[in-house]
Design a protein around this nucleic acid. Sequence first.
DNA 1: CGCGTATTTGAAGGGCCTCAAGTATAGTGG
DNA 2: CCACTATACTTGAGGCCCTTCAAATACGCG
Lengths: 260, 260
Amino acid sequence: MSDSGNATPLLTPANRRRFPPYCPPVECSACALLALCRMAGLGVDDARLAEVVGRKRPVARGAEVRRRERRSVIAVRSGALKSEMPRPGGEAQIVAFHLPGELVALAGADEQGAPEVRTLALMPSEVCELPVSELLGFAPEDAARFHLRLAQDATAALLAAQRTLAWTRGEGAEARLAGFLLDIAARFASRELPAQAFRLPMPRRDIANFLGLAEETVCRLFRRFHGRGWIAVSGKRVVLRDPAKLRAVAAGAAADASPA
Amino acid sequence: MSDSGNATPLLTPANRRRFPPYCPPVECSACALLALCRMAGLGVDDARLAEVVGRKRPVARGAEVRRRERRSVIAVRSGALKSEMPRPGGEAQIVAFHLPGELVALAGADEQGAPEVRTLALMPSEVCELPVSELLGFAPEDAARFHLRLAQDATAALLAAQRTLAWTRGEGAEARLAGFLLDIAARFASRELPAQAFRLPMPRRDIANFLGLAEETVCRLFRRFHGRGWIAVSGKRVVLRDPAKLRAVAAGAAADASPA
DNA sequence: CGCGTATTTGAAGGGCCTCAAGTATAGTGG
DNA sequence: CCACTATACTTGAGGCCCTTCAAATACGCG
């Protein structure tokens, strides 16, 4: 198997500069918020869109994404976010990462007091905010369809959270990291972003937190996967070289074959 | 503090028989489905209730809870359920337990094919099913309010799932089990069921699966907590004797004080 | 180009898992 | 109502995976 085809770019210093950018903006056509925008009576290029939806609102790296309206749905346009839940004693637990085109802030969309979940930008990002309150004056039939769609999006998010709960409990640290890489790649692919070679938006520390591992363990696993030829990794740049093997590892297969 | 009052029953053989039953049925007044039932135009004691809502539908121990209608919301009336997500290679991962008065089957309420999440009865149980499709002919205003409530319930469920994700990642096995016991107790209390002395509806094996631990570890932890006087445990019967200490442990406090 | 942050690497130790066997419970059927 | 039996719970010993602590290096941002 050795070096079968150099179709995948190697992470030589020369290739680093031409590596895909971090998290490029997605078009409205690939955004999960599109259905709600349309249902709100807004054409994508309509003039009213800019009025109701806060488009391209910038969020600085490390800053918290906060609702402008009491009740609203937020989507990521570019960059990446993380949602974390504080724990009584110790570090907050990261419960989800949000990539371009994905919805945020569905959980607790109606909570009154201080939000339990904090959402922070992992890099300079842009978000779109669709205020639900602006739409309450709509015709009852439209409001019903809108809220139904909202409920569907929320149940979809719940299902996604349960899937996450399932594979992050995978036996062994290798299974978890393999599952993580495949999850990120699949989500990039579903938004028509490069999914084989990409940059991880989050530091090792956040990956470790999310997977329930130590930061050093995540580092060692990246190196181990790299050494086995499953991936090529240099800092945040990652190339998936053997997705099938990663799937097998994520499913619990012991690593026996493949040269070290 | 020694034996300050024997208000809490000891788990002597004599007291076993008078121990609270497993998961007694909740009244409609304490059920999370009540708001949706009322909004659907159904008085709790209304004759139509029996027609639209499948009340007291029995589910045998180990049987799968399946929707009768394509789209519906299910609540637990008595007993207890577990929801599990299959994993590629190996045992399914339990993602949630459902106690009397709680909603189920929100996730995937709209999915078309075979459901990803399977919901099984941990003991002989009764469930109520409210078919959403039956209500689509309602007045638009009522439909709008109904779907809004549905969306709120869905986001609340998502928030609950994220909370679960946070404390089940607690550092150390002791923190996880302490958090688990407090979680169960709090949910019993919110439904006006006995929350200090109760029976765990699920076997050790399921607790271990849910918390990402080995079954033997869970057993040892129960015995350890029992030995330290934090709880009294005999099989599935549990009495919380020092909830404050359990909270401290769940928050990550090291166990140093308290006699062994 | 320099500094701060992020990543990497090593060594030692502990906590949880695995395997195995015995005991007690509770559900089942007569 | 009681006996029976399958399931669930408990307990012990040994070993490995992951964590912790510490320090050096590489990268990226201003």
